[in-house]
Design a binder for these strands. Structure first.
Lengths: 204, 204
DNA sequence: GTCTATATCGTGATAGAC
DNA sequence: GTCTATCACGATATAGAC
């Protein structure tokens, strides 16, 4: 998981100490990888296509990240650190948690920036155990621990997961399967209907 | 989609009119295909592995069904005709529809016979458009038309799909992602919690 | 840093022997 | 009916030139 770390590294950061020149190529690869994994899922997405999308050779992708799995981890899991690290989830009163949680999840799905990593996880986790583990880790760290901890009930974790099931299922039908009419209904309409249901799961 | 149909076919069914001897080989292939598609999803599952599971050669699989996609359709979509064709869905009163629908969906997921085709569809529909179309067709034909028709509300379809989202999301976390504790909780516990929520979606 | 070339493997599908 | 042999292709990954 650690990237480099050459042990001893002190003093003035020289202009080219080890690997200096990366004029955005690495980021372009990561961006292309996110798009590919989002569209095709882990197994179907190819390193060649990722490289093509970044305008480089496939060997260069391996040069930067190693295996395809490491590309996936770098591209997808890394993108969640900022997205999931929201400070004020469940800031309001207890009776607003449902509305807040539903609105937050729908929000990151509607945002075109955070949608790609979510699609990538979703499309990959169902057929690839590594991606499934990442998925479990994301929900565990970001929702179970944080939300269930505030509930203070013996069945808190199950409550949160049933709420997550509603939200993930909605995202699946709307953004992945594209089932009508749920795929086209305004997000405010969805939020209005899901808020109370999530609330019921959490505190009902 | 039609299988054979040699036009004129009358009189006594001769012992070997066209293709007579299929001593279960075809069924063994279908069974193996269901298992493979359930475990790996459409893209990851290979015709060779399906053939191996049936104890035959991969060429024979093509001989029977044609393309891999036709194997998938035959193995998965066909298995839903009996499973989905239940006669008494929504037989009780309006206030029991939630409980009935939740119990029915959880039931076919718990049944080890019907679970494999469901897993196959689930694992395949998220990354493969053909499988997604089958998934949409299944929900559309078996749930939207039948359940929404009984609701008699202008937003009936959206109501049903939100209920389906809850149930599909639960199945995803429990049977595919295997997220704890929802993966291990008794099914009766789940049914008790999901029934009222589904009811709320439908008639709330 | 970036790419060329290649090794190695697995895939879906088909032709044709038996 | 079932299998052998093979084609054509794309995959991941690596070695090494520049």
């Amino acid at each position: 998981m650690s990237s480099a770390g050459p042990g001893r590294r002190r003093g003035r950061p020289a202009s080219a100490e080890k690997v200096a020149g990366e004029p955005g190529t690495r980021d372009r690869i990561l961006s292309s990888a996110r798009a590919e994994f989002a569209e095709s899922g882990y197994d179907k997405a190819s390193v060649r296509a990722i490289a093509r999308g970044a305008g480089v050779d496939s060997a260069l992708v391996h040069h930067y990240f190693g295996t395809k799995e490491q590309v996936f981890v770098a591209a997808v899991e890394g993108a969640f650190a900022p997205a999931m690290d929201i400070p004020d989830l469940l800031s309001g009163g207890r009776e607003q948690w449902g509305e807040q949680l539903a609105g937050y999840v729908l929000g990151i799905w509607e945002d075109t920036v955070t949608r790609d990593p979510l699609l990538a996880i979703m499309r990959s986790a169902v057929a690839n155990e590594t991606a499934a583990a990442i998925f479990r880790g994301l929900i565990g760290r970001n929702l179970l621990r944080r939300v269930a901890g505030n509930l203070g009930a013996p069945d808190a974790e199950l409550r949160v997961e049933l709420a997550v099931a509603q939200l993930v299922g909605t995202a699946l039908l709307r953004y992945v399967i594209k089932l009508e009419p749920i795929a086209s209904v305004p997000v405010e309409e969805l939020a209005g209907r899901l808020g109370p249901v999530v609330q019921r799961h959490l505190t009902g």
